[in-house]
C-alpha cells in the first residue's frame, strides 16, 4: 500500500485504441440519425418558404461534418488500458471521463452486441461493480474476439469468493 508510483505509471501508459471498424459504426449511426432531418429539410424545401437550398444546404454541410469528421474525433477520444490488475476506460469528446475499475471489484462481466455492432463484428464489454457510481462501466467498439478474450482474462483475475 502507500503512494507508490504504480498508479502513475498506469496513468502514463498509452491507451489502446478501439477497433477501426468502430469508426465505420459511428458513421453509420450518425447517418441513421440524420435520416429524419433529411426528410424534414426536404419537406421544408418543398414548402417554398425560403429561397431554394436554404434548408437543404446547411443540412448537407452539418451532416457531412457529423458523418465524416465527428466519428473520427470520437474514436480518437476513446480508449482503454487493460493492466495487470485493473481496467481503465477513457471516453467522451466534450465531457471526458476516465474510469479505472480494479479487477478485484468486478461483480460480473457482460459482452453485448447490438445489431449494428454485429454488422461490423464489434462488441461491448460491460464491467459491473457494487458501487453506486459506475455500477456498470461499458467499453464499446471492441473487436468481438478481443472483447471475449478480455472477458476471459478479467475473469481469470477475479478470485472466487470464500464460501
Amino acid at each position: 500500500m502507500g503512494d507508490t508510483g504504480q498508479g502513475i505509471i498506469t496513468e502514463e501508459r498509452a491507451l489502446t485504441p478501439l477497433d477501426p471498424a468502430h469508426i465505420k459504426m459511428l458513421r453509420l449511426q450518425a447517418a441513421i440519425a440524420a435520416v429524419p432531418f433529411a426528410i424534414g429539410s426536404l419537406v421544408l424545401e418543398s414548402a417554398n418558404l425560403l429561397p431554394m437550398g436554404a434548408f437543404f444546404v446547411p443540412f448537407v454541410l452539418a451532416a457531412a461534418w457529423l458523418i465524416a469528421r465527428v466519428p473520427l474525433r470520437r474514436h480518437a477520444a476513446r480508449g482503454y488500458d487493460l493492466g495487470a490488475d485493473r481496467l481503465r476506460v477513457v471516453r467522451g469528446l466534450l465531457f471526458r471521463s476516465d474510469t479505472v475499475v480494479p479487477f478485484g471489484r468486478v461483480q460480473h462481466i457482460d459482452v453485448t452486441q447490438g445489431p449494428l455492432e454485429r454488422m461490423f463484428g464489434l462488441a461491448t464489454l460491460v464491467v459491473h461493480t457494487a458501487g453506486t457510481h459506475n455500477a456498470s462501466v461499458a467499453l464499446p467498439g471492441l473487436a468481438q474476439a478481443d472483447a471475449a478474450s478480455m472477458r476471459e482474462s478479467i475473469r481469470a483475475h477475479i478470485k472466487r469468493e470464500t464460501l
Partner: peptide
C-alpha cells in the same frame, strides 16, 4: 490523479475477494 493512484494501490494491494461485500 494522485488520489486515484493511491486509492487504486490500496484496492489492488489487498486480497479483495474477501472484502468484497457483493
Amino acid at each position: 490523479r494522485r488520489i486515484r493512484a493511491a486509492v487504486l494501490d490500496s484496492i489492488t494491494g489487498v486480497d479483495f475477494s474477501r472484502l468484497n461485500s457483493g
